[in-house]
Write a protein that binds this DNA or RNA. Sequence first.
DNA 1: CAGCTATATTGCTATAAAGCGATATAATAG
DNA 2: CTATTATATCGCTTTATAGCAATATAGCTG
Lengths: 107, 107
Amino acid sequence: MSLDLVFAALADPTRREILVRLLQGEATVSDMCDPGGLKQPTISKHLKVLEVAGLIASDQRAQRRPRRLQLANMQVLAAWMEPFQRQWDGRFDQLEALSRAQSQKGE
Amino acid sequence: MSLDLVFAALADPTRREILVRLLQGEATVSDMCDPGGLKQPTISKHLKVLEVAGLIASDQRAQRRPRRLQLANMQVLAAWMEPFQRQWDGRFDQLEALSRAQSQKGE
DNA sequence: CAGCTATATTGCTATAAAGCGATATAATAG
DNA sequence: CTATTATATCGCTTTATAGCAATATAGCTG
């Protein structure tokens, strides 16, 4: 649940693809390594990283182990970004205020 | 400006600390390696990574090269996360609706 | 010019990570 | 129990990265 694990997990493009795929619903390991893509052990390793980071969870149905998103831990990211977002919005507001002031002057 | 570079840059805790520090305003290389911490070449390397990722920019004042945040590229992150946020909010809304329905039934 | 300060670059070592094939484990089917 | 399917783990190679000391470069100051 550390910020570190979450960011490290998201740093890999394959893992981000996996997460995006899971937006459409759960998927099994074999679903994900389909044809010509990465091999099963590779996928399994990525899934473990995502699980340790708390970004996904796994069910067990027969031999299948479908994974699903665990969005609560994704919010940790959002929380970290908040101050930056705030500063970004702040600058936007300033610009807006400035342009308002300008148009006022123009009248 | 690739998502990949941005995520990779954020994967390192030292680089995240640098960004957080820059929230309070610009800072030079020497500001950042202060005492007992990381050495100057290490900091410079991190700064380069952040710059390539488009997360910071550098000015030049005399020999100093103060760095400042470049928040526009941080928004790329936010954009990537949006679908997840939406799904998260969606679930929340569902819960809320459910609880509304329950309390209605209770009356 | 010489010397100083701030930063960048180079070359190195150590550690971690991605990907793979081979193999082990787990659950089901017959 | 045997075979099959789904997934996990192991051992390996290759590539990338963090950190450092040493050195180079750039701008200022005298």
